[in-house]
Amino acid sequence: MFWIEVLSRQKEIIQRHHAAADFVTIGRAYDNGVIVDDPYVAPAHVRICRDESGAMVAEDLATQNGLLDEKGKRHHRISLTGNQLIRIGHTWLRVRDANFKVADERPLQPQRRLWPGLMAMLILLPGFFMLNLWLRNTGDYSITLYLGQFVSLATGIAIWIGFWSLLTRLLTGAACFTLHAIIALTGIFALQIISFTQDWLVFAFSSNFIAQYSFPLFWFLFALICFAHMCVISSKNTYRKAAIVFSLAACASMAQWFMDNPLIPEDSGAKRPYLTRMYPPSWRVIAPETELEFFAEAEKLKAQLDELRKKEPRRGMFDNFLNDFNDGEMAHR
């Protein structure tokens, strides 16, 4: 006694046929033990039986399209171990003996309750987003401002979650929507908090360093979000995934650093003041400088500028445009 399983292209089981005898034919015709509705399958295509030693085999019944193994190679006879897949026409089959050894049952785990987490994030993220928007709104209140910003944020997040859920559904069969939603919302919430904190730290500590070099943190966090999504899809190959994602983030950081620094000429004005975002005065942490200290530092700019002055100016990104713009005609004075 054995079972014949018809699989989808994704190797999911579509049908199971019980075969009581040790001999069954498969094909499109009605005299077969198992009927397959695949126009590429012959009326009588393959025979499943036992060989001399009693092992199960599949034998081609001299058909046009033949009997194929997993790799698509044609055979007259394939011996079947139970995990071996065979293909006739476009149909995948697997044959298992009744005494095929299946894995032990999984221990029943207490179900992870995802909804409270999702609900919490659904409150926290829009809440913080709106709060931030409100704190930065110095003009008149306008519902369209808030609504517009909220809708664009929500749309963006929905597309992101949708993408990962669809990918998961295709690869594993389950969408894991809630889990993806929690990851995405938490990640974006963290990005917002970090961004806010960064601006504040720059103000609180007069820190040019934070203003200039915090961008890898954002890339790292972005990589972490992607990594978490990937782990939902499958928990296999964790190290390899982490290596790929985080090295991509490192590359992105490097690329950004190059864009911000050596590639853009010093003259292009890429270096802008950093203490431009203000917070309430009481949010400062370190003590201000004295006037003497301040001007001692300011005086050091002279050496920097004189050094820059000696350097031949390089062409900036926008200089071409400006030069074209300046091509005037004759000028009267």
Partner: peptide
């Protein structure tokens, strides 16, 4: 936030052949 918007220094564009770019020193002074 309103203050941030009105407290930017006025840094005109530096044409590279005439001027060096601006260099700034920024801090809180007591």
């Amino acid at each position: 936030e309103a203050l941030s918007r009105s407290a930017l220094p006025n840094l005109p564009w530096s044409t590279a052949n005439r001027y060096t770019p601006f260099r700034c020193y920024e801090n809180f002074m007591a």
